[in-house]
Amino acid sequence: MADRSGFLTTSINSIANWARYQSSWGATFGLACCAIEMMHTGAAHNDLARFGMEVFRASPRQADLMIVAGRVSQKMAPVLRQVYDQMPEPKWVISMGACASSGGMFNNYALVQGVDQVVPVDVYVPGCPPGPQSLMHAILTLHEGIKSGEFVRV
């Protein structure tokens, strides 16, 4: 894709991606246990502000990263999709924890078996719940992807 573009567009793209990864703001989508670890990641001890991410926006209109933190029930899935649709492009999704990624240990009538059936996911984080370090690793992975243009959907 990049090969066919001209010099100017690729340069603008790389500048835009540089800006995007430096300040990807998260939408608070705390659902369950993982949300508590997400709070811990943002608080003083782990200090997510080091990566330009200390702001978690309450409104999806101001966010470009959705961290799905916790199990997604079938009742919640339409809500999740609506919040995702309300986020402006370009946007990314981190599926935090085993439940969000695959339903975890709850393979039953109530849960969506993986949030990737509802929204496209960029990074999956393993763990139940993933510690702050795991989440930060996922965020840095995402930043790498955004920087290189790998994760930008057009």
Partner: peptide, 27 residues
């Protein structure tokens, strides 16, 4: 909106596995 069906899942786990299930209830 967070109904996880834990009471149903609890019926499919042994008593030794039970705490794995209920510990995720009030996290």
């Amino acid at each position: 909106y967070l109904h996880t069906g834990m009471e149903k899942t609890g019926e499919t786990l042994t008593f030794l596995q039970g705490p794995t299930n209920v510990t995720r209830m009030d996290y």
